[in-house]
Design a protein around this nucleic acid. Structure first.
Lengths: 175, 175
DNA sequence: CACTCCATGTCACCCGGTGCCATCAACTAG
DNA sequence: CTAGTTGATGGCACCGGGTGACATGGAGTG
């Protein structure tokens, strides 16, 4: 993973071959594909962790919270984790933003995340329709805030940016 | 495009090679790639039309409408178009839902759609933050309603399903 | 010591995707 | 009518991502 990110950063994602990554990591191409399903996936191994943290936050939400508040409760542990990885997140975001196929992968990871959050909501008794919309809304808020966070310099601003986006969403859908 | 959808439907997306599609269409693989940027793209040529219709609806929205209402105005022409293509949409959705790489493409098309809707909102004077959240919300409503629409039998139900999702979103984000 | 297990290497192969040049028909200028 | 131009297509070689099958070798285990 480190080898891959170094190379992507140095010479671009497209210009880097899997054989090069494997070589720098002291492996063969074949072994690379035993660890990562495809070349893109090497940049997304962190998504499991994101999902785990988010669900933790959801589980910790008070029983009487509204669906969106439950989803938003997942943002706490997530913001905490990212605060220590601002530099890494910026480099990674630069790579992803420069490559449509990586953006596609990012979007489907977010979609899967929304799917598991929806399942957690349904588990709590929220109806399926409301659950999927609340989960999607929460993930969108995260996505938008994340994009803003990597564009600016304060590593601790993530939580604030997410709250701002959340408020903005509430006011936009209010009328 | 017809050749591709036939083959995907008959034998699956993965199991179909571009050479086969080209052969059935009376072309060569090389020519296929002059018309479509990649194999996935053959299923997404309709997304331009979707975007065009949606922006038409947005342009027709009253000047004093709220951001989300402006976005929702795009759903009218969209629903109208899809009403005549229920059978096609079901077949296509079946293919896409069976293949993660096609879902990725679908998601990025929706993301691009949200981006152009956002731009249209900004053009109307909506602030960038509100615009992106409203656009994303509208696209999510479309996506969720679309999934429900292809799961049931009434071709004319799309408009109603979108309105239901929209209301659901409003009530979920209300508290 | 023999055996099993598991990670890795090696190799051949398929297919998506591209660059380059050849071909050929339609059209245009003289 | 001819020569030249343009644009769509075919043909071909090539690259790189991704996979199946088998060989190898080292760590544990009886």
């Amino acid at each position: 993973m480190s080898a891959a990110i170094e190379l992507f950063h140095e010479q671009g994602y497209e210009a880097t071959t899997v054989a090069e990554i494997a070589e720098r990591a002291g492996l063969t191409k074949r072994t690379f594909f035993r660890y990562f399903a495809d070349k893109r996936e090497v940049l997304f191994s962190g998504s499991d962790e994101l999902q785990r943290l988010w669900l933790e936050g959801v589980a910790a939400a008070p029983a009487d919270a509204t669906p969106l508040a439950v989803v938003a409760a997942g943002l706490d542990p997530v913001a905490e984790m990212f605060a220590e990885r601002h530099d890494f997140a910026r480099i990674r975001a630069g790579i992803v933003n420069a490559n449509p196929e990586l953006q596609e992968r990012e979007l489907i990871k977010l979609q899967n995340l929304a799917g598991t959050i929806k399942a957690a909501l349904v588990e709590r008794g929220v109806c399926a329709n409301a659950a999927i919309l609340a989960a999607q809304a929460g993930v969108t808020v995260f996505h938008v805030a994340f994009a803003r966070w990597v564009e600016q310099d304060d590593p601790t601003a993530f939580r604030r940016l997410m709250d701002e986006s959340l408020d903005e969403l509430r006011s936009v859908t209010a009328a």
